[in-house]
Amino acid sequence: MAKVKGEIVVNTERCKGCQLCVPVCKENVIAMSENLNGKGYHFAQSVNDECNGCINCALVCPDGAITVYRVKLNESLKAAS
């Protein structure tokens, strides 16, 4: 059975800290940083490695700040080995 593993990369300068991405993530991957970006917003960030690459966060992000990656774990590990 292929296990899916995802990751998100937030463009922290593009993020405006609206938090729309936070509740749509069923895995509770996203939280707002305590740090501020150049515009003065608390930007979104990935806080655990539970992401399954569902892209929900990227879909609702008005600023297109989130890029999503996904691998099928078994396959990629097979390829790596």
Binding site: K5, K39, A65, T67, R70
Partner: peptide, 30 residues
């Protein structure tokens, strides 16, 4: 994981690099 070949969603290149002038959370951007 974060390699180009694994990317499944990113901002379309048909949006320019200019930061959107809309308020945080505004639906215009989407």
């Amino acid at each position: 994981i974060c390699q180009p070949e694994n990317m499944i969603y990113c901002r379309t290149p048909l949006l320019t690099d200019a930061p959107l002038s809309y308020c945080p959370g505004c639906g215009h951007g989407t």
